[in-house]
Amino acid sequence: MSVRYGKPLVFLLCLVPLGVLIGRGASGALGPNPVEAITHFTGDWTLRLLLVTLAVTPLRRLTGQAWLVRFRRMLGLFAFFYAVLHFTTYLWLDRFFDLGTIAEDVLKRPYITIGFAAFVLMVPLAITSTQGWIRRLGRRWKTLHRAVYAIGVLGVLHYLWLVKADLLEPAIYAIILAVLLGLRVPWADLSARLRSAMRRRSWMAPERR
């Protein structure tokens, strides 16, 4: 699949959940508690797209398909897009911009504190996702964008912490996240060793290139 056609396709795919949500809203299919339904829906899709974004690098390394990385920014920005919808739903439909209760929530309710922190951390990553910022930040860009690991952990904890009894769904997210993060640990090690091995070879036998 060429990246040229792939990008618009992934873009449209990422908009499908929003379309579904709007469709449910318009047809009255959000159920007796629509605000709760919108909150859960946008929260679910934030987490899912966050996990998909985090899957790009391991998948690329496992399959050797380098082009996959070209979708990563768009996926990450869509995770942020759904996070914005999620946060806006909370601010507007749940709290009606009542700063007093919002502050109380953020300070007193751990799952909201954590969700809020994850959202705040996403903002600089979204802002610095452009080519210009990548260039300007240079090596520091990569360091900054490692914050996505923390965002993933905070996001899953946010979900785990608000559930009353049935931990099955948040546990599935937690396991997937653990696998995606785990894949990076040995790989980081392995790839560094491979790279140094290659460097040594090319240094020892430069004429063979």
């Binding site: 007796p32 439909l93 109380e104 929530d105 309710r109 799952y111």
Partner: peptide, 21 residues
């Protein structure tokens, strides 16, 4: 008396619709 994870000061009345406080 708040639930440790959320406030009990207010509630949503089912059927009030999504723009209701």
């Amino acid at each position: 008396v708040d639930h440790p994870r959320w406030s009990q000061k207010t509630h949503r009345m089912i059927g009030d619709g999504w723009l209701a406080k």
